[in-house]
């Protein structure tokens, strides 16, 4: 589960140790879930209400978070690894662009958008190659999924002109 490029940060006394961040995150999730489920009836053990499981689980998540947090102060742990931004940002942008365009403009626009935006995530990317590959993938997928398998995915929508 460790990444190969950065050597795993050794045990240290980093302020943000991995376990401390993990514990705080669990506590935050727990708090949020407790708030979100506060309007649900808990019920009794005999007639368990809709709120019992969410509240119970949220509380238990919080308990594990507190234990992790406390333990992180008692013994040194691994430091939180660095989180690069480029990969997640580009990939997420590509996915969102796909989601926004697939039903409004169609797959013929959404797929190359996804390939190009996400493709930026890799430092080794080359424009010419990526453009060609995006075009190839788009045509290939249209042939396989729309023509071949007849999935109801819109390919190109230009209002009043094309609706395929």
């Amino acid at each position: 589960m460790t990444d190969q490029t950065h050597p795993r940060p050794g045990p240290g006394r980093a302020l943000l140790s991995q376990d401390r961040v993990a514990g705080l995150t669990l506590i935050a999730i727990s708090g949020f879930a407790l708030w979100a489920s506060s309007d649900l009836a808990t019920g009794t053990l005999r007639f368990i209400g809709p709120g019992m499981m969410p509240k119970l689980l949220a509380a238990l998540v919080g308990v594990t978070g507190v234990i992790l947090l406390v333990l992180s102060f008692l013994k040194p742990g691994d430091a939180m690894p660095a989180i690069p931004l480029r990969g997640p940002v580009c990939v997420l942008a590509g996915i969102l662009a796909f989601a926004l365009t697939v039903q409004t403009v169609g797959f013929a626009v959404a797929a190359p958008l996804l390939a190009l935006l996400a493709g930026l995530a890799d430092k080794d990317m080359r424009w010419g190659e990526l453009l060609g590959f995006a075009a190839f993938m788009t045509v290939g997928c249209i042939l396989v999924f729309k023509v071949g398998l007849n999935l109801p995915i819109p390919v190109l929508i230009i209002p009043g002109i094309i609706q395929y």
Binding site: F98, A115, G119, T138
Partner: peptide, 15 residues
Amino acid sequence: PYRLLFPAILIFSCI
């Protein structure tokens, strides 16, 4: 190369 594989993986997955 992976720089081409991962956009392909993403497109298939999104479809």
